[in-house]
Simulated assay, not measured.
Amino acid sequence: MTRRLLSLLALGYSLSLASPTQAVRAPKVTELLKFPNATRIENFNVLPNGHLLVTTLSSSDVFTVDPDAPSPQPEKVVTLEGSKLLFGVTPLANGLYAISGGAASAIPNRYEDSKIHIISLASKSAIDSISVPDVEFLNGLVTLPKRPHVILGADSFGGRIVRIDTHTRETTIAWAHESLGWGTNSTGFQLGVNGIRIRDGYLYFSNARLGTFSRIRIDDDGKIIGKPKVIAYLPGLEDGAHLFDDFDFDREGNAYVTAHPSSLVKITPGGKLTTVVGGDGTTTLSAPTSAGFAKDGRTLYVTSMTAQVVKVVFPW
């Protein structure tokens, strides 16, 4: 092998090491709008047409937002009678969506009268309401991929996963475990399991107060298999202000998790945690609550308790 060839090979090797670092670019972050009246946005779902279906803690109104509009604005779809505030939202079959709702209780930071509301976007109406008894706070929701009429719900105060069959109206406790509770911490908001998603046969869940991001295997019917595994811990949770909230996955299986007070973090399948947007002392995000990818796989929307709808575009 000639000296010149060796030099070229060495140069190629050094470029291959340098390229990944040189290719790393920050995402473009844009605040699309703020809901009026300091609306506390809780959750949303990206609809097939690219619009966002949004729930809030400020009322029982459900909204849509067209993020591609020249000046995006919330449009009310339906008011859900029987609930004072709304939480999780997940798609069912045939253009229907399930939304968890409830009412504030006399105990601070507690809720009662948990319900699953079924809405039709085609008719812009509520078509059913299912009471979920013996649940302390029904928060995040997810639909079973092979049972699109069955959903799992996160009981954030009770430390449980609830199974709701929207056809039979049967509600059962699918799983209760210490990894879903809020432990013995006495400071901050005492909230356990929060966001939940299903991916490749696993139920992934964030725990706000424990600061954990975990998963456990489930079957097609929502039955829990095996033991939970913690994938990552949120730094700084000891002060009660650093809390995991809702999340979504990119196509590579990385989770993008909203984290109070002001961060969007990326968690790789191997558990590496990095801050993608915001961070302590920043104002780009303020009390972020939920994240969801658009169909293009590179646009991520983030909502917040301070009325924000933020668009994050990754340079992939």
Rank of each mutant, 00 (worst) to 15 (best):
Y13W: 15
E31A: 14
P145G: 11
R163T: 08
L53M: 11
L96Q: 03
G192A: 02
P235W: 08
A104G: 14
N207K: 13
W175V: 04
G211L: 06
G12P: 04
D296F: 13
P74W: 04
P74T: 03
T268P: 11
P261E: 05
S125C: 01
H149C: 14
G102L: 06
P235N: 05
L6V: 12
R3P: 03
S129E: 09
V312W: 04
N37E: 15
A93C: 11
A23Q: 10
N49H: 03
A294E: 04
T21S: 13
V257S: 05
S120Y: 02
Y204V: 00
E112R: 12
I130W: 01
K266Q: 13
L6Y: 11
G222C: 09
D165W: 03
V150E: 09
T79D: 11
T30Y: 15
T258L: 03
F44G: 05
I161L: 08
T275N: 07
K28F: 13
T289H: 02
V62L: 04
A307E: 09
E178P: 02
L92E: 05
G271R: 06
G88S: 02
G159C: 00
R110C: 04
I198C: 00
L180D: 00
G188S: 07
G181D: 13
V135P: 06
T64R: 03
F35G: 02
F293V: 14
T143C: 09
K266V: 01
L138Q: 02
G292F: 10
L141C: 05
L92P: 07
F44P: 00
P228G: 05
T258Y: 08
K28R: 12
S16K: 01
G281C: 08
L33A: 09
T282Q: 12
T289P: 01
F293R: 08
P70M: 02
Y111P: 09
Q73E: 05
G50W: 10
S286P: 04
F244D: 06
D245S: 10
I224G: 07
G12V: 15
G253S: 14
I196S: 00
V312Q: 08
D61R: 13
Y204K: 15
G50E: 13
F293P: 09
D239T: 06
T299M: 04
L53S: 01
V193R: 00
D113M: 14
V135H: 06
L203V: 00
G271Q: 12
V78Q: 06
Y233M: 14
T172S: 11
I127R: 09
V78H: 06
T268M: 12
D248F: 02
F205L: 12
V62F: 00
S156M: 01
G211N: 04
S286V: 14
R3Y: 08
G292T: 07
A23K: 06
S263Q: 10
P91Y: 07
H242A: 07
D155A: 01
V265C: 06
D68Q: 15
G88T: 00
N109C: 07
D221P: 02
G181Q: 01
A26R: 15
G201R: 10
A103K: 12
L6I: 11
L85R: 11
T306Y: 08
S290E: 12
